[in-house]
């Protein structure tokens, strides 16, 4: 689908430049994951960044320190609750609509202005994650729009050559979206049963040592690992101990269910970490 209203840059036809790096050896060293397997990256979260919206939040996740790698930068605004348009049918609950949009420049491959299927898919995931958290029957006949722009998409400039990286990036983006939307919802004063935050865990295999079994890491950066076998993104309510959204993909033998269970556990752990930041941020704003 092309947008005829704007003059688009070439989509897909160009190859992002990859610069010859004299320090390849040095980079390889940086490339490895420096964090412990169950530590997430540092993040910065601030609410109330968009005064015109009813609620808003901004989330930034640090880069790895390696040049050419951008972190994840998300901005979320919440509009509403506001009355539904006249034409829409009666709803005993709040009607939630979520929009996730990558900025055209957020990823290696430029994106158009219209939402592509990936962004729509992220939107539905986010909706499922938030729907479990909000108390929708407090706000009958009203609607809320949650709009997230991904300003920078957490992509390594060099990763374009690796196949399938994009799909793992989506997991990280979704987990960030969930956390930032939860903060913005709280900022907008919409009733929630709990604060929901996203966490990602992945099963990775390092090619260097074939002997070792794959291990599970939280908050993976695809470029830091040789091969990601599977990943899962969890939206988790810590005080209720409930999962509102679970997204797993990869390739896992069904006989190794304990691996799957461990991954979900790690995902929950990552989500708990993110939630601590979220709580801290909210108390700071109020206090």
């Amino acid at each position: 689908m092309t947008d005829r209203r704007r003059i688009n840059g070439p989509v897909g036809a160009t190859i992002p430049p990859v610069f010859e790096d004299t320090l390849t050896q040095e980079l390889k060293a940086v490339k490895k994951r420096s964090r412990p397997p169950n530590a997430i990256r540092k993040m910065y979260l601030k609410t109330g960044v968009t005064p015109s919206a009813s609620g808003s939040a901004y989330l930034e996740i640090e880069t790895t320190g390696k040049p050419g790698v951008s972190g994840l930068k998300l901005s979320c605004s919440v509009h509403g609750p506001r009355s539904l348009p006249r034409s829409s049918p009666f709803s005993p609950h709040m009607v939630l609509s979520t929009h996730v949009k990558y900025a055209p420049f957020a990823t290696n491959k430029r994106r158009g202005y219209l939402r592509d299927p990936i962004e729509r898919d992220l939107g539905t995931h986010l909706e499922a994650a938030l729907r479990g958290a909000i108390i929708a029957d407090r706000w009958p006949k009203s609607g809320v729009d949650i709009i997230i722009s991904i300003v920078e998409g957490d992509q390594d400039r060099e990763t374009s050559k690796f196949q399938g990286d994009e799909m793992w990036d989506m997991m990280n983006a979704l987990s960030g979206c969930i956390t930032v939307a939860s903060a913005a919802l709280a900022d907008a004063g919409i009733d929630c049963v709990d604060t929901v935050a996203g966490g990602v865990a992945a099963l990775v295999q390092e090619s260097g040592d074939d002997s070792t079994s794959p291990n599970i890491v939280v908050d993976p950066i695809p470029s830091e690992h040789d091969k990601i076998l599977a990943a899962c993104c969890v939206a988790y309510l810590p005080t209720r101990d409930e999962i509102t959204n679970l997204w797993f993909k990869g390739d896992l033998p069904a006989s190794e269910m304990e691996l799957y269970t461990k991954m979900v556990e790690k995902g929950i752990q990552a989500s708990r970490h993110a939630n601590r930041v979220l709580i801290e941020c909210l108390t700071e704003t109020i206090g």
């Binding site: 709803s91 995931h125 929708a136 679970l246 997204w247 993909k249 390739d251 069904a254």
Partner: peptide, 20 residues
């Protein structure tokens, strides 16, 4: 056969939107 798990997704159940 060896079963392999490929993906899991939560489907937002419509139950949350039902009238009380």
């Amino acid at each position: 056969r060896n079963l392999r798990l490929l993906s899991i997704r939560t489907v937002d159940p419509p139950s949350r939107l039902t009238p009380p």
